[in-house]
Simulated assay, not measured.
Amino acid sequence: MKIAFYGSSLVSSYWNGAATYYRGIIRQLHKLGHQVTFYEPNVYDRQKHRDICPPEWCRSVVYDGTTEALKEHARKAAKADVVVKTSGVGFEDEALFDEVFAAAHPQSLKIFWDVDAPATLSEMRSHSTHPLHRQIPEVDLVLTYGGGKPVIDGYHAMGARECIPIYNALDPDTHHPVRAENRFTADLSFLGNRLPDREARVEQFFFDAAEQASSQRFILGGSGWGDKAMPSNIRYIGHVPTKDHNAFNVTPKAVLNISRESMAQNGYSPATRVFEAAGAGACLITDSWEGLDMFLKEGEEVLAARDGQEVAEILQSLTDKEAKRIGENGRRRILREHTYAHRAAELDRILKNHLHNNHIEAAE
């Protein structure tokens, strides 16, 4: 089937944490025979920081960040069997939603795909005039990349006909073990952009851990931290392009995952980094959240901490042998149950079922 996908960016991960997620799922959809066109606006200098070329497994269309260009490319949704508008496109999201689904064929499957559902629902609850209050009931299906029952129930309360999580996963072709690189040598690394609902937790789990484990070496990657005061044993390296993620993950003794505040509160929201790190065979330490064992078993396939002190304690007692064991166990689990091939197969069934139902309703 033909899928029109309107999102933030496929070709750039710059200020775009969903890039790996989009690439993994769309690549596998292509293998299942679907034809996907990804439409993205030229905003936030993402095109200046491309980290992949337009791929053979998806048609990539970049349009100017203008209202006229938005409307022009939104009209192309009319040719698709499935039309997807994601959250956080970053340019005129409300207008894009309206234009895309107004242009879609009456029998097409209309999907809003939320890649930050806990935050979106929080905004909707806080603002009675939020545009999604009127828009969500208009689509056939809401997909999210995490959230579990709290998010599903939240979207149903907002008028969604159906809400299904399609969790983050691993693409073993892009994220896998490689040789260590000296530039990423450390005892603990963390990769994440500086965001309002992440910063306090980074201070708690990463900066506090660095202060308490002063003899350990820490590396911080991600955009926006340049003017942030931090302990002297943290080395800040800025934006880390996707091509360097494997080396970034395999070189340190351990890799830290820190959930954003809204995702930690809801649980069942593993970040892309969880699967990237585990897929590379890294020893992963994560902040503790409900639903973790659905993806990795604590103490065997992942290590969990409740605060920075526990991170420091884990790091100081962690041997190289134990770190390797945890990393290998985690990688096996992810490959067995949580690849994008698994997610795409699930999504394929969902799309076909909903399109079938749409056609039956149209015939009646």
Rank of each mutant, 00 (worst) to 15 (best):
K2F: 08
Y6D: 06
W15M: 12
A19M: 06
T20D: 05
T20G: 14
Y22W: 15
L32T: 11
G33N: 11
V36E: 11
T37R: 11
D45P: 00
I52Q: 04
P54W: 04
S60W: 07
T66A: 03
L70C: 10
A74H: 06
A78K: 14
G88S: 13
E94V: 06
A104Y: 13
S108A: 15
K110G: 02
D114G: 03
T120E: 04
S122M: 11
M124D: 09
S128R: 14
Y145E: 03
P150R: 01
M158A: 15
I166D: 06
R179H: 12
A186L: 05
D187Q: 12
F190A: 04
F190P: 08
L191A: 09
G192C: 01
E199D: 14
E203G: 02
Q204M: 11
S215Y: 00
I219C: 12
G224H: 03
G238E: 08
D244I: 00
F248H: 07
P252S: 02
N257D: 13
A264H: 09
Y268E: 06
V274Y: 15
G281S: 02
D287H: 05
D293N: 15
M294I: 02
F295M: 09
K297P: 00
Q316M: 15
K324Q: 15
G327D: 03
E328W: 07
A341F: 12
A345I: 09
A345L: 12
L355A: 00
